[in-house]
Each structure stands twice: as C-alpha cells, then as structure tokens.
C-alpha cells in the first residue's frame, strides 16, 4: 500500500514517525529536566510549561475529534461532553472512592464510550445543521447535570483532587517543576493516539471511514456497515477525548461545569478545522496553535494596555478566512489534481 496517497507527508519535515517521536521526546525531556541541572533562574518558566501541557491536552482532544470531524467528515460541536465526562468521572472516583487515578481513566473512557453510542445512534440519519444541534444539545445535557447534581459540586465543581502517583512518586515531583510529569505523560498519550490514528487510517477500518465520508450510499453498496462504523468512530473519538478530560482533572486538581461549555466544544472543532482534517500532525500543530495564539494575544493586550482582547476578534476572523481560503486546514492535504 506504500504507493497510496494517504500515507505520505504525515510527519514533520518528511521524517518518519519514529524519528519525529524520538526528536520530540528528547525536546520534551529537555524541557522537563534542564532546570534540575543548573542552579540559576529557571530557563523554562512555569507559565511556559503550563502552556505546553495545555498544548498537549489540546492535541489529544483534536486527535480524538479527528475520528468524527476528520475521517468521517462530520461536524460535532459537542465533544467537550466526553472531555467533561472523563474529568468528572475521575474527580468523582478520586473524591468518593479513593480509586487509583490510572484506573479512573479507564472507567472514564468506558463511561464516555457507552454514552457515545446513543449520540452516534441519534446522529445516524442526520447531517449538517441537524447534526450540529444534536451534538450541541448532547453536551448541554451534561453541563446541566454537572450544575444540578449536588454530589458533582454544582456550579463550583469539585476541587482538591490529589495528584496521581507513578510507582509511588507523585507525578508533580517527577521533573524539575510540578508540570513536568504531566508533560511527559501527555506526550506519551499524544504519541500513542497519533500512532493509533496513523495505523487505523490506512487500514480496512480507516478506508471504511473514508468511504462513508465520501458517499454513504456507495459505501453501503460496497458492503460497508455504515451504522457500525459511524458508531465505532464516535466511540473511539469519545475514548480519546475522555482521557484528555481525566488528565485535565488531575492537572487542574479540580473540575467545573465549564468543562462542558460550548466554547470548549467549538475550540476543539476549530483546532481540527484549522490544523487540517485528517492530518495527524495537523491535529497536534492545530491544537498547539489554538492554545498558544490566545496566550500571545492576551499578553499583547496586557502590554499594549488594550481594553479588549484582540484574540476574540481574530479567532472569528481566522476561522472565516480559513474556511474561505484554505478549507482543508493548514496542514490538511489538498485534494491534489494528478490528472
């Protein structure tokens, strides 16, 4: 299958996946540990590390949504639901049962995967704006549950979650700062999700997704069970976003109904669109870009003493311009003309 097009240009600068992984791993380890080996002022401030962690979380979310909005080509403005479900499951389990954090990730995934099935069923026969409404409503339901169920802490959410341990060492103590451990953990998770996506997209399952994206009727006629594969994509997507939620809960040591906000859902969707649907590196870079840009403009606002945040305007503008000029996203593959 080497000659088939989907395969090429997936990793940075034409490097192989393995080399990309190694280089990024070295960079991450460097960022995590440099400040341990010299006495002076920290090279990598805690603020920068915080942003890096957020970039990785975003990348994970984008990789998750990519299964729906990339491979299946369907719009979802409700994926914050799975992010929130993962986070709340972890929070509830840590607070009320004292269950191990790592196990709570799996329980969260299971919850998200189960809840993805009715969402997939509801979305089966609809398209376009109806799908947007359904996914949006799905997420809203969970926001109301989070706000109104007392054990979930209401609008204030749940705070004071303990940091997880890795072989008896708190994750916050692993590296030079309390964020290093999360960075390494998330880096590994993003790598696994990227590897997973890459293997799946060129497989029989990935081609089934592609067929459904292109033409559902023809896909059925070619022997593809459209319902099954749409549900499968939703379940995978939910599981990945749920993992991001669980980590976020531990990292922030708290959860709040804001996790389920439509702003979050839209943000995840725009990361996929701007990064470039179906492109794995697009997800990672798109997620990072949509995390870093707001921060940059926020500091512009502070420095210039503006009374408004320029990002709010640019964000909308960026989406509009992208849709007009480069609908396939920055790193998305063009539908090239070989003819």
């Amino acid at each position: 299958m080497k000659k088939l097009r989907i395969n090429s240009g997936e990793w940075l600068f034409g490097l192989s996946g393995r080399v990309t992984f190694l280089i990024s791993a070295i960079l991450i380890l460097f960022v995590c540990f440099v400040d341990k080996f010299h006495g002076g002022k920290a090279w990598i401030p805690s603020y920068t590390q915080h942003i890096l962690v957020t970039c990785l979380l975003s990348a994970l979310l984008a990789l998750g949504l990519n299964f729906i909005s990339g491979y299946l080509g369907q719009t979802s403005l409700g994926h914050a639901a799975f992010y929130g479900i993962g986070a709340y499951t972890t929070a509830v389990l840590l607070t009320y049962t004292g269950l191990n954090f790592w196990l709570s990730i799996f329980v969260g995934m299971l919850m998200s995967m189960l809840l993805a099935i009715p969402l997939a069923a509801a979305s089966l026969r609809v398209k376009g704006q109806f799908l947007v409404v359904i996914t949006y409503a799905f997420c809203e339901i969970f926001r109301y549950i989070a706000i109104n169920v007392p054990v979930l802490g209401g609008t204030g959410g749940m705070a004071g979650l303990k940091a997880p341990e890795v072989f008896g060492v708190r994750i916050t103590k692993l590296a030079a700062t309390n964020k290093g451990g999360y960075m390494i953990l998330l880096f590994l998770l993003v790598s696994v999700a990227a590897f997973f996506s890459w293997r799946v997209q060129r497989s029989r399952v990935g081609y089934a997704f592609a067929a459904i994206r292109e033409d559902e009727i023809a896909a059925e006629a070619m022997g593809i069970n459209v319902k099954y594969y749409k549900t499968l994509a939703m379940v995978i997507s939910a599981a990945i976003c749920s993992i991001a939620g669980s980590i976020q809960a531990a990292f922030a040591t708290m959860v709040s109904p804001e996790l389920f906000s439509s702003t979050k859902s839209i943000q995840i969707f725009s990361m996929v669109v701007i990064g470039g649907r179906m492109s794995i590196k697009g997800m990672i870079l798109g997620g990072s870009l949509m995390t870093i840009l707001p921060e940059v403009f926020h500091s512009v606002k502070d420095m210039a003493g503006l009374s408004f945040d320029p990002w709010n305007i640019l964000y909308g503008l960026l989406l509009v311009v992208m849709m007009r000029v480069r609908p396939q996203g920055i790193w998305g593959r063009k539908e090239k003309d070989e003819g």
Partner: peptide, 26 residues
C-alpha cells in the same frame, strides 16, 4: 465513486466485504 480518493483506493474499499481485519489488526 469515492471521488476524492485515488482510483486504487476505490478498489481497496470495495474489498471491505471480503476481508475481516479490525482495529486491532491495524
């Protein structure tokens, strides 16, 4: 046709019903 995919990919997709690999195999 699956218009945005290659000619070869169109054939590969049609093989779906005769194969049984899943996510794990991939």
């Amino acid at each position: 046709l699956f218009g945005n995919l290659t000619v070869a990919e169109n054939i590969v997709i049609a093989r779906h019903c005769r194969r049984h690999t899943g996510i794990w195999d991939a």
